[in-house]
Simulated assay, not measured.
Amino acid sequence: MSWVGIDVFSHPFWAISTVILGLVVRSLRRGSWDPRVCDVQLKGQTAIVTGANTGIGKFIALDFARRGARVIMACRSEARGRTALREIQELSGNANVHLRLVDTSSLASVRAFAEGILLEEKALHILINNAGASGLPRKITSDGLEVSFATNHLGPFLLTNLLLDLLKRSAPSRIVNVSSAMHRHGKVDFSHFQSDNLNDGLSVYNHTKLHNVICSNELARRLQGSGVSVNSVHPGVVKTEVMRHYKFLVRLIFNLVGIFFFKSAEEGATSTIYCAVAEETEGITGKYFDSDCSLVLPALLARDRGLGAKDFEICERLTSKP
């Protein structure tokens, strides 16, 4: 492209304009709610955060630790988990932060983790289902499930159900499921759970995030009057390791663009923290929050009660012991 013979894309004007636009976007990224000015304390409360060793999960765990909570970091990698654990303890000054291992792609791992929690913990006030991945190589897990659906949806679904009684006994308590605005591009085809009729990796991610919202809404309906709230959130377009399974060139472009236009992991944690601790979200359930901590309507499919009931029942069947 050129204007009067000038190659715009190689001209300094283009580079400078792009940088300025990026800086303006960065300055506008933070929403109206700031966790740093929220004085809610969590002393005496227990919180579980999955995927807490990196990205937004790490900043969610750090925020809870700074508020005085007993924090259970549910991580897949012990080495990376221990590194994050030490950092969170040092930054928060809270020694009551603990590492427990879980791989949400494995139902056996989820059951073992939940069994340990039920034996060790007397209460659970906050459950953050944050762990997830995009672009995973297509494969079937030992449970007969497509790996992205197991990691992003069915594993967290099972974990939540296994811990429900503890959450009820600890009420008021909150469940927050980290979804994505990409759920609007997802589709519901229950054969996807066994890896049938699937296309590219990004579409798979979108489908899993749609199921997150559908089942969050259905669970909220089932828990009415229990004192347990369930909401789903969009953290924003965040520069994290979620793209680590994509090809190098895709990751490079994502990271370069992200320097100027995407949220940092700390900023991306905001909407989840808002749902989990803010006084103004207490008692709100069955809702979907965007990255600016605003209530918005999710995709039409996520509001279909009949579909929600069917989806939940199928997920229960798929995650039940044989």
Rank of each mutant, 00 (worst) to 15 (best):
L318Q: 09
G144I: 10
D34G: 07
F193E: 08
Y288D: 15
H207I: 02
R67Q: 11
F262Q: 04
H192V: 09
R317A: 03
L159M: 13
V257G: 06
L307H: 08
S92N: 12
D39W: 11
T270K: 03
V233A: 04
K58Y: 01
L256W: 04
F261H: 03
A123Y: 12
T272P: 01
L42V: 04
H245V: 11
T83Y: 00
T240G: 03
I314R: 14
Q224V: 15
F289S: 12
I126F: 09
N177W: 02
H125A: 13
V213N: 09
S27C: 10
V97H: 00
E280F: 05
S105D: 00
S106H: 12
A276V: 04
G236Q: 06
S264K: 11
R317T: 03
H211N: 12
T208W: 07
V40H: 15
K139S: 13
I128C: 15
E316C: 05
G5S: 05
G258W: 01
T83V: 00
S320G: 07
D39I: 09
R303V: 05
N152W: 05
M1L: 06
L145D: 05
A79G: 02
E121T: 03
D103E: 15
L219T: 09
S216I: 02
N53V: 00
V204F: 09
V296L: 08
L163E: 02
R67G: 12
R174Q: 15
A79F: 01
L127E: 15
R36M: 14
C215Q: 12
G186T: 07
L42I: 08
T54L: 01
V296E: 12
E266T: 06
D189W: 01
S291C: 12
A171Q: 13
P156E: 02
V178Y: 05
I126C: 08
T104K: 01
V237R: 10
K139N: 11
Y246C: 04
G5W: 02
L210N: 03
N94A: 14
S294D: 15
L223E: 14
N130Q: 07
R138T: 09
I60Q: 13
F64L: 12
E241C: 03
G44K: 10
F149H: 09
G201S: 14
S32K: 13
L154E: 02
R80N: 04
A133T: 07
I16L: 10
L163C: 03
P137H: 07
L118R: 14
L154R: 09
L295Q: 13
A15P: 05
C75N: 03
F9R: 11
V178K: 07
L136M: 15
T319I: 04
V110N: 01
T270R: 14
K321L: 12
G225M: 14
S195L: 15
K139D: 07
